[in-house]
Design a binder for these strands. Structure first.
Length: 811
DNA sequence: GACTGTGGCCGTGGGT
DNA sequence: ACCCACGGCCAC
């Protein structure tokens, strides 16, 4: 029997002669594309009330809505449900579609206690049970069958993961980007507006295809007869290139659905799938586009989802993300004019083609750059790239747990019912502790933080839904969280605690290797492990989670508060002054102590910390500032600035790092903070401020510096309070511009009376003479710097340049 | 229909 | 003039 070593990329199933067959698509070690077909039977778990139910289940079959269903076997297995041993029944049915049918049926039976894992997708069940991890080497035995398929199909007789867990390398990526006919002010209309140009970029191809001729020397531009011919060329290119991954930027919701619709309209057969299928759309909250046998990597989904915390950007436009990650970009065409140029001035189309190709290129480069992260996620979670690309944090954690539960003989708890969900949503967790700072400028600060505080608490105290006990338990060694009146058994490692511990220790090992040598794949692995570890606490407190546990989530935060406050007390006893603390960090003033003493402080703490918990010395800062809050007289939490030893600034919470503040206010605030932290030079900062205020009054500043950006977070009609950005969104909608939740609204406040929203205007429609100097001075600049100058005793009047007069009066 | 958690600051509108 | 809900966005 021939043996094949191959890397699976995509997975589907089909019913062949009435039986379900899994199809794995991938590439062999020597680069050949193949598919592997493997018989597999769907099943789920039932916990019986009475043992006799087994026989009743075995004989279950019938018909519903003209479709027959049947149970093919029932097997008794010893399993665990939240740590408790149960006699479970593995109920195997003949087809995947029978699973929900049979589940609903037997759920009502008196002799069935509960039904589990009936909602795990069939292909995912297969991957878990066969221990197959996509993009990781798999060994298959079998013969090539005679199926209608673009690539050879091996009928598997045996399949198993390879021993060395080798990862797929050198994947072929093809980036796609289209430009469509889009008259100004009209919405997207796939039925009536054609695709004008389509760009592809891959390792061996970089080309724009368009169907209007114009004179050009660009060899990258290819002319075809019409739109149908463009789609034909796209089909040809995909078939020639045989990519493992097709990538795009919002290609889930735009490029691929658009291509699909136009192909349908023009009757172009886009049979690019390995099984001759076309682009398929899965409609959910937003569309997912799929091609059989090829992984579709939508870069925006990954950047906005899984990597959100690691990539901070004001906007998720391709340009913004590319400049953040790749440090390049900038195209200079007005895309709004494309339709007009296409109709009336085709000789001017070349820059649009360049733009189109540049977008495909940027997308390709982003996909290449992010692929290590996504690959590591695939290896960690064990689901195909297509799925990992689009997963939320909770799905990530849950998929990981479903992959791990077998090692603990656990069966997943059921998803909550609507009623249970409503109950869970009513309670609120108490969160972290934040120490209120005393406003002031400080020198010689040391900052500490607990390494992965919440994950390390979960692992070190065995916090897990299956180890929860009553607070007054007599169990030996049980750890009591008195704040939450609950205890945790220490007799046996809890499922989630063990899994979290494994994630943390794996990350520590990776970090150790990285200390010796740089490796982008290991960097990516460390990052994904950290993201995963940090997601467990949120998951435990997430009402829709299968392994939801209010007690666990509340205990994690309670212990977090306990550890941080104990550390604060110890720091004070050791002679430091505690300036600030938030959740897992502590800011100390050295009070004349040495840096060495500051570093040594962590040793005194770590000596008494359990398990994997560890306080880390984050660093030394020559100066730092905390300010008072707007209303109360106390210090503002979550707003501070520090000066690093290398001269750079750390700014947290201030307007300078917030999106919905004008550029000018951010600039001024940062400048003032810098002057004060570097030299405590408030006089110089004040002079600078006066200069800027003068400039604003004299209308010397560009409108662009006055722009305020605010996100529209819901449909315009559902707002109770109409703020400036909502008013602008309304205006835009009135002009026929498509405005949806998620849009970043830009506006400038102009002169006049009344509400701010009535004076807000689109930046493009605002002249430099029109912006309201008083608004920008009193509502943007002054509030941004007032509390900083207050530390030096400067009043608002002084900031506005009225100080001299006031003093004269006082004299 | 999907959605990881809480703590916190502050501007604006909407009401008195 | 004042209070407070709404809304956005940030820290962790």
């Amino acid at each position: 029997m021939p043996t094949f070593h191959f890397y699976p990329i995509d997975i589907t199933y089909r019913i062949v002669s009435g039986k379900p067959v899994i199809y794995l698509y991938g590439r062999t070690k020597d680069g050949q594309r193949i598919a592997v077909a493997d018989r597999f039977d769907p099943y789920f778990w039932a916990i019986p009330q009475k043992k006799s139910v087994k026989e009743r289940l075995e004989n279950l079959s019938g018909e519903k809505d003209g479709e027959s269903y049947s149970v093919t076997s029932v097997e008794e297995k010893k399993k665990r449900l939240l740590g408790k041993e149960v006699e479970a029944l593995k109920v195997t049915v003949s087809q995947p579609k029978d699973v929900p049918l049979v589940r609903e049926l037997i759920r009502e039976w008196d002799d069935i206690q509960s039904v589990h894992e009936a909602d795990i997708l069939f292909t995912r069940r297969y991957l878990i049970d066969k221990k197959i991890i996509p993009m990781t080497l798999v060994v298959v035995e079998g013969e090539e069958g005679r199926e209608e398929s673009r690539i050879p199909v091996i009928a598997a007789t045996a399949i198993r993961p390879a021993e060395d867990e080798e990862t797929m390398k050198g994947l072929g990526i093809l980036a796609v980007d289209i430009e469509t006919y889009y008259p100004k002010g009209k919405g997207i209309d796939m039925d009536n507006n054609p695709i004008l140009m389509l760009a592809v970029h891959g390792e061996t191809i970089s080309r724009v295809i368009t169907w209007k001729r114009f004179a050009t020397k660009r060899r990258s531009i290819e002319f075809v007869q019409d739109e149908a011919a463009l789609l034909h060329r796209f089909r040809e290119i995909v078939l020639e290139e045989q990519p493992d991954i097709i990538t795009g930027y919002f290609s889930d919701g735009f490029d691929l659905p658009y291509i699909k619709r136009r192909a349908e309209k023009l009757k172009v057969n886009l049979d690019i799938g390995a099984d001759f299928s076309g682009i398929s759309l899965k409609k959910g909250m937003d569309t997912e586009s799929k091609i059989t046998g090829i992984a579709h990597f939508d870069v925006i989904k990954f950047v906005r989802g899984g990597l959100r915390t690691s990539i901070a950007t004001d906007s998720y436009s391709l340009n913004a993300v590319a400049s953040k990650l790749l440090g390049e970009t900038k195209h200079e065409v007005e895309l709004d004019d494309l339709a007009e140029v296409w109709d009336k001035r085709p000789e001017k189309l070349e820059p649009y083609c360049d733009y189109n190709l540049q977008d495909a290129l940027l997308t390709y480069q982003l996909a290449e750059k992010l692929l290590p992260n996504l690959t590591e996620l695939v290896k960690l979670i064990g689901l195909p790239l297509q799925d990992c690309n689009r997963m939320s944090f909770s799905q990530l954690v849950e998929s990981f747990l479903l992959r791990k539960e077998g090692e603990f003989d656990e069966i997943a708890p059921e998803k909550p019912t609507e009623h249970e969900l409503a109950k869970r949503r009513k309670v609120r967790l108490q969160g972290a502790f934040v120490h209120e700072p005393t406003p002031g400028l400080y020198h010689d600060l040391a900052v500490y933080d607990f390494r992965s505080l919440y994950p390390s608490i979960i692992a070190s105290h065995n916090i897990s839904p299956d180890t929860v006990r009553e607070a007054d338990t007599l169990e030996e060694g049980a750890f009591v969280v008195r704040e939450e009146k609950v205890a945790y058994s220490t007799a046996k490692k809890g499922f989630i605690a063990a899994v979290v511990e494994e994630v943390i220790t794996r990350r520590m090992r990776v970090k150790d290797i990285l200390k010796k040598k740089k490796d982008p794949f290991l960097e990516a692995r460390a990052m994904m492990l950290k993201i995963l570890a940090n997601s467990f606490y949120g998951y435990l407190g997430f009402p829709s989670a299968r392994w939801y546990s209010f007690a666990c989530a509340a205990s994690v935060t309670a212990l977090g508060r306990r550890y941080i406050t104990e550390t604060i007390e110890k720091a004070e006893k050791a002679g430091f002054k505690v300036l600030y603390s938030d959740t897992d960090s502590i800011f100390l003033s050295l009070q004349g102590k040495s840096k060495a003493a500051a570093k040594k402080f962590v040793d005194d703490i770590n000596e008494h910390l359990p398990g994997l918990m560890e306080l880390e010395y984050e660093g030394f800062y020559p100066s730092g500032i905390f300010v008072s809050a707007k209303d109360n007289k106390g210090g503002a939490k979550k707003r501070y600035a520090l000066l690093r030893e290398d001269g750079s600034l750390v700014i947290k919470g201030f307007e300078a790092v917030r999106r919905n503040t004008s550029v000018i206010a951010k600039e001024v605030q940062e400048h003032v903070l810098k002057a004060i932290l570097e030299k405590a030079d408030d006089k110089k900062a004040l002079n600078y401020l006066h200069g800027v205020i003068k400039g604003i009054r004299e209308k010397k500043l560009a409108v662009e510096k006055m722009v305020i950006r605010t996100r529209l977070t819901k449909p315009i009609s559902s707002y109770d309070a109409i703020g400036p950005h909502v008013a602008i969104a309304k205006q835009m909608k009135g002009k026929g511009i498509d405005i949806a939740p998620g849009a970043i609204i830009r506006y400038v406040v102009t002169t006049g009376g009344g509400r701010i929203r009535d004076r807000a205007k689109l930046p493009e429609a605002t002249k430099q003479s029109e912006y309201d100097a008083d608004y920008y001075i009193n509502n943007q600049i002054i509030p941004a710097v007032e509390k900083i100058f207050e530390v030096f005793g400067h009043t608002k009047e002084e900031l506005l340049g009225k100080g001299a007069q006031m003093r004269l009066l006082e004299f």
